[in-house]
Structure formats: C-alpha cells, structure tokens
C-alpha cells in the first residue's frame, strides 16, 4: 500500500525512532558546552601540572573549580557517549554484538563519569 502521508505529517511523527534530530541536537549542545568547559580544563591542567598532592587538592577544594570540573566531566562524558554510539551503529552490524557494545558504551561512560565526579566531590568536601 502506498504511503498517503504528507512529508509534514512524517516529520511530526519524528521518524522511525521517534526521536527526530534529538541525538544530533544533544551532540551539538554538549559540544558547545565542551568548548568552554574543556578550555577551563586545559587551563586548570596547565596551572596544576607538577603540583604536589596538597596543592592539587587545595585547588580542587575551591567550589568554583570543583563545580566547573564536575560540569566538564559530565558534559564530556555525555558527548562521548553519543559519539561512540554513532561509531558503534556505523560499524557493528551483528544485532547481538551491537547491543552488547551499545550497553558497554553506556556502562563505560557512566563509570568514568561517576568515578571522576565522586573523586572531585570527595576532594572538594575535604576528604
């Protein structure tokens, strides 16, 4: 049976995945955040490289630094989760392996994200 729907009606349904351009949009949104946050991150790394443990933890105990570091981790991890998802969808064709790698991608990003944010909070809360 031929498709009687107009292009507009199809667009309103947001395609077969019902997500429309959501993945693309979130990828770009986190990219915009990353431009600013990674710039902060690079400046922070240059400022603290070679620092002792005491110097680094005292720098990270500053709330502004800790907040920016946590945001950097969150934005970067979200961005890379979206990016690796596209790479997997492009190159992994077996249905089973595709699901395993997509799940592994989410787990890896969650682990890096939670691990890093926990470390930042622990240092920042003095401990």
């Amino acid at each position: 049976m031929s498709d009687m729907r107009t292009p507009l009606a199809k667009v309103r349904g947001l395609g077969s995945a019902k997500e429309g351009t959501e993945h693309f949009w979130r990828q770009r949104l986190s990219a915009v955040a990353n431009v600013f946050l990674i710039t902060f991150f690079v400046i922070f790394i240059i400022a603290t490289q070679g620092a002792s443990h005491a110097e680094l933890t005292s720098a990270l105990s500053n709330p502004v630094v800790a907040i920016l570091m946590a945001l950097t981790v969150a934005s970067a991890v979200y961005h890379m989760k979206l990016g690796m998802q596209v790479i997997i969808e492009d190159y992994v064709h077996g249905e089973g392996l595709k699901y395993v790698t997509l799940i592994a991608n989410t787990f890896f990003c969650a682990l890096i994200g939670f691990g890093s944010v926990f470390a930042i909070l622990k240092i920042s809360f003095g401990g």
């Binding site: 970067a76 991890v77 690796m84 890096i112 691990g115 890093s116 470390a119 240092i123």
Partner: peptide
Amino acid sequence: LYFGTVLVAWWLIAAA
C-alpha cells in the same frame, strides 16, 4: 579521547 578519559578519571581518583 573516549579512551583517554580513563587517564583523567584515574588522575582524579588518585588525587582522592
């Protein structure tokens, strides 16, 4: 960079 984040996480967890 995806796999490089392991170095960032390891560094932060080491500091903690």
